[in-house]
Amino acid sequence: MTIALSNVAIAVISTTLQLSPFYLFAGMGEIVSEKSGVANLGLEGIMLMSLVTTFIVDYATGNPWIALFAAIGTAGVIGAVFAFFAIQVRLDQIALGLAIYLFGLGFSLIVFSTAYPSGLTPNYVSLPPIFSGWGNVPVIGTILLKQNVLVYISIVVVVMTALFLDRTSLGLRVRAVGENPKAADNMGVSVIKVRFLATLFGALMFGVAGSYFAGNFVPGFQTDIITGRGFIVLAMIYFANWKPYRALFAALSFNLVYALQNEYISISGSSVASVSTLFNMLPYVFLLALIPVFGRKARMPKFLLKPYRKG
């Protein structure tokens, strides 16, 4: 009984960690972007395009690293288009984000089904675990050493994002153009340029998240495969009050609830579909319940969603 329980614990912790990079990369991207005053609601569309790029390039080259960078490139292109319309042209960020989402939702599947008319997903070569030889080490091996290298990189990115926003002068400028663009402008900061860089960084991070989705969530590709998980990131960083470490906590606890209900369903071997669908709601309801508790103190960047016009 005790052995079974520890196995469950290992499985739960392992799943929690395995799912985290998706939310962490995307979360850090959105935090930096929103701190500068630009909310990117097109994130799931960008992720879908990056996901498709990953599949196609991974299959063509057999090299998951090249696929990852190609995905980041795709995200960068769409991110630059978004940034141009949102920052330079000053279109409504929410409407523009939803337009980018719709575009990505449609375009990704057209590209995928044109590349693979059979509809079958090619074999996906995943990024290697960081210490591949040590996977047999009990407990630690399963929980930590067998994880994809991006799991570790994502934690590093959280730390770097926190340091960047708090300790660097560019980070200060990012916060300044989101809190008080007029004052920042008077101090000689180029609001447009800083916002553009922050938004582009955000998009690149969505590219990593979208690429990580391949092979770590579902094996193949189909319409709307991310099913709202990208949008969940918006709720996570809202709950986290735009603080990187709190976003890490939000992502881990969300994944923990997910992993627990997932494990419960598979152990109970529930053949009753209704029970599992009810449990699937838990992580989202959990996140929702956190909002009135922690979200009360959430204070969004003062000029979030507000375009800046010089002069």
Binding site: I232, A235, M281, G295, A298
Partner: peptide, 13 residues
């Protein structure tokens, strides 16, 4: 609490 975030969450729910 921001209604965009909450309505999006509730879509999934």
């Amino acid at each position: 609490a921001n209604e965009i975030v909450v309505t999006i969450l509730l879509n999934v729910v």
